[in-house]
Nucleic acid binder design. Sequence first.
RNA 1: GGCGCGAUAGCAAAGCGGUUAUGCUCUGGAUUGCAAAUCCAGCUAGUCCGGUUCGACUCCGGAUCGCGCCUCCA
Length: 466
Amino acid sequence: MLQIYNTLTRQKEIFKPINPGKISMYVCGITVYDYCHIGHARTSIAFDVIARFLRSQGWDLNYVHNITDIDDKIIRRANELNEKHDQLTARFIDAMHDDEQRLGILPPSVEPRATEFIGPIIELANTLVQKGHAYAANNGDVYYRVTSFPGYGKLSDKNVDELLAGARIEVGDVKEDPRDFVLWKAAKEGEPSWSSPWGNGRPGWHIECSAMAKKCCGDQVDIHGGGADLQFPHHENEIAQSEAANGHQYVNYWMHVAPLRVDGEKMSKSLNNFFTIRDVLEKYQPEVVRFFLISSHYRSPINYAEDNLIEARAGLDRFYTALRDYSDVLPASLSELADSDYYKAFVQAMNDDFNTRVALAGMFDLVRDLNNAKNNPEQARNLAGQLKALGLVLGVLQENPEVFLQAGGSNQIAAAEVEQLIVERIQAKKDKLYARADEIRKELLAAGVVLEDSRDGTTQWRREST
RNA sequence: GGCGCGAUAGCAAAGCGGUUAUGCUCUGGAUUGCAAAUCCAGCUAGUCCGGUUCGACUCCGGAUCGCGCCUCCA
């Protein structure tokens, strides 16, 4: 039985779909004015794992992951780079897809872009104006009237009155109330714009998600997710918009992924302490990064630190070492797994608010049993197939073990050179020249390569995680 | 200041009112020409102070510390 921690109620709840067997899941994506950082990767991977798991359990999942491709930062960056805004966004969308592919993130069911939903956005803004929840200011901006929505603050536990105290009042503000937020922004000279009942302009940030969720998922969404930093104001504003317009509950289960930290602080654009995905992948294998990010629960903050990445590689080393002799074994099918205790433990862990850490712990148990079963090839192959099947749900363990183990590390020495030294060493061993054999071992170890002799006289090698 | 989250062994990170989490590290043993890998065994826990309970790391209260949101942010 699937349980999900709901930010709205601050507790784990038994999941009940709106439509039997179906789940709609809307996840806030990225504003594409720069390369994605690994904080973005954390959220994307968390929901990728959730999507993979839900599908594996037979749910008919509609996973919507949007792209914000028009906003102030995009316009500013395009001006800085003297580039058209849509060229800029196209470039960074390509980069994002590239990063996602490398990290094993499967494409969502739908990937709507704000600029493709201008019509529905205007329609929604219009509805809100007509219902008295929004108003057009005299400069062509349209604002949401926060005090018109009684439930405002329910997601983030904010008190509307206290928000007034902290609200920023800008010079020349045309809002009725400092808490009001923009639905439609009048265009200045030269800015990209679309025509609307209020003149040329562009959508505000929050309304695009309300509009796209409505079009892609319907008026009510099963699961809506994103980074924890979107809880307020973004998701709070989405609720205000959608519930005021639709007249009923917008989202049943709100899920928020904890921030990734650097030196104990949140990694973010504004703090400028972020590492882009491509920077990180220069240094670590994609699967190592992915494994690191799923090694803790999605609601726990994790620290991006070298030691933790090395540990992730060490964990994967254990998995891939166990799978070494079974590169030809295919992941078991779900029907083959039905009676497996490992599978049951895995599903139980994942059903408990997607506890990947506990799921992995069970997979390590499976590794031990697999290593113990090496004298029973049939059983061993069966266990290897199970392990790969569980790995597939998490999006890991699908590489060829030798390829994985021989990649990464410092790469001080080429694979061909390693192979050559191994040939020389095997000859030395045959000649009982153990001093020479040990010398080669030491030399390679200094270059981060570990040799592993086997009983039949062959030698396997891998690169160390450091 | 308001709202919220967390504090677990050398490190990382989970569940659980009483029974081994797990991974890495470390120690001993098996194995190995030496190693590595693997297996077996073991060592290190629950920030502090109270309370509830036969019994608390687990529930309740308080303190301390850390973090997030309150402004664009996944």
